[in-house]
Simulated scan of single mutants.
Amino acid sequence: MSTCQVNKTYEEINAKIAAGEAVVVTAEEIIDIAAKEGVVEAARKVDVVTTGTFAPMCSSGAFINIGQSSPVIRTTKTWFNNVPAYSAIAAVDCYLGATAVCEEDPLNKYHPGEFNYGGGHVIQDLVAGKQVHVKAESYGTDCYPNLAIEKTVTLKDLPNAILCNPRNAYQNYNCAINRSDKTKYTYMGTLKPNMANANYSTSGCLSPLFNDPYLKTIGLGTRIFLGGAQGYVTWTGTQHKKDVDRGLNGVPLSGAGTLSVIGDLKQMSPEWLVGQSIRGYGVSLSVGLGIPIPILNEEILKYTSVSDEEIFTQIIDYGYDYPKGISKSYGQVSYAELKSGTIMIKGEPVPTVPLSSMVKARKIAQILKTEIQKSRFYIGVPQHLFC
C-alpha cells in the first residue's frame, strides 16, 4: 500500500487530459513550483511534467522497405544515395544506420576527415521529402530471380519506414576534455589540446531520464515525442545500466540508463531528425526526444523538480584515457556549472561547449505541454517497467 499522501493513476490523468483539465508544466517550470508550494501540494496540483532533449544520438536508424520489383528480388546489398544499409533481413527490407558513411568517402585517410554525408543525412533527406537514389543487388534465387534494381524514391513512395533507435536518451554523459598536447577529434566533438575546452551533451534538468531517475513511470509502451511525431519506448537501450553511483536525489553521477525507441518515420520532421557530420569521427543523427512524466505521487514530483545545480557528471580525458580504456575521473561538475560557459579544472578556467541544444529541448518540452493540454497526446501506460 502506498505511503504517499498523493496517489493518482494513469487512467485518472488521461481522463483529465481528455477533458482538457490536466495541469501540465515543463521540467524547468516545476522546479519553482515545487520550491514554492512543496512537493506534496505541487503533486496535488500538477498532473504531467514534460521533458525534452535534442542531441546527436549515434545509435539510431530506420527499418525501410524499398518496395518490390518485377521480377521480384531478395536484396542482399542496398544503398541510399550510395550509403550502405544492412540487407540481411528478408525480401526488400533493410536497416539504414545513422552512422553509415557514403561509400566514396575518404574517411580518415586524410585526417581529420570531413564526413559530409551518411545515414543520418539520408534519414533527414527522407523526412524532408527529398528524392533519394536507391540501388540494390542480389545473388538471385528461384523465387527471387532479379539480380538488381535501381530507382529514385521519396519517403511517401516507400511502403514502410520505421525509425528504430537502439540507444537514445542517455541518462547522463561524460564531460569530455583533452589532456594531451594534440587536438583530438571525437564523437564528443573537437577537443583542443591541454584542456582548452570541455564538451558535454545533455539538456540537464530538461533531460527525460533525469526527471525519472529510477524509471518508475517509463517502460515498455511509454508514449514519447520522437523526431516530431508520437513514438514509443520498446525496451531499455544498449549500454543501459541501473546499478550505478547516484546522488541523494537518485540521479546517476555518470552514464546510466538508456532507451530503445520506435516510431513512424513518415510522420516525422527534418526539424527533429538532423544529419550530423562530426569532423574526424564520422556521421550521426541528432534526434529530438521528449517524455511526459505522469505525476502519480509526490515522490515522482520530487524527482521531476531536480535542478541543474543538483545534477552532476564526470570529467573524462578523451586525449589519452578514454582511447586506452582507462576509467578515471578528473572531477565532478554540475550542469549548472557546465551551462554557465566555464568550469574550473585544477584551478584553471575551461570554456564549455554543449553538443545538445537547450533551445530545441525547451521547444520539445513546450510542444509536449501544448499537445497534452489540447488533448492530442495521452500518457502511455507502461506494460513493463525497467526499475
Rank of each mutant, 00 (worst) to 15 (best):
N7F: 05
K8V: 11
E12Q: 15
A15D: 13
E21K: 15
V23F: 12
T26G: 07
E29D: 13
I30L: 09
A35M: 05
A35N: 13
E37P: 08
G38T: 13
G38L: 08
V39Q: 08
V40K: 01
E41T: 11
E41S: 09
T51F: 10
P56S: 01
S60A: 13
S60H: 02
S70P: 00
S70G: 04
V72K: 12
K77R: 14
F80A: 02
N81Q: 01
Y86G: 00
I89D: 07
D93P: 02
Y110G: 05
E114D: 04
F115P: 06
K130P: 01
K130Q: 03
K130D: 03
Q131V: 04
A136L: 15
G140N: 06
D142N: 11
E150G: 03
P159L: 15
L163P: 04
C164L: 06
N165L: 08
R167A: 03
Q171S: 08
T186V: 06
M188R: 07
K192G: 05
M195Y: 10
Y200N: 04
T202E: 03
L220Y: 14
L226I: 04
V233F: 10
V233I: 13
D245H: 13
G247A: 14
V251T: 09
A256Q: 05
I262K: 14
G263D: 05
P270C: 04
S277I: 07
S284L: 02
G288N: 13
P292G: 08
I293T: 03
I295Q: 01
L296N: 11
S305P: 02
S307K: 07
E310Q: 14
Q314M: 14
I315T: 05
D321T: 03
K328L: 09
K328N: 04
Y335P: 14
L338K: 00
I343S: 06
I345D: 09
P351L: 09
T352I: 14
S357L: 03
K360Q: 12
R362I: 09
K363D: 02
I367Q: 09
Q373A: 14
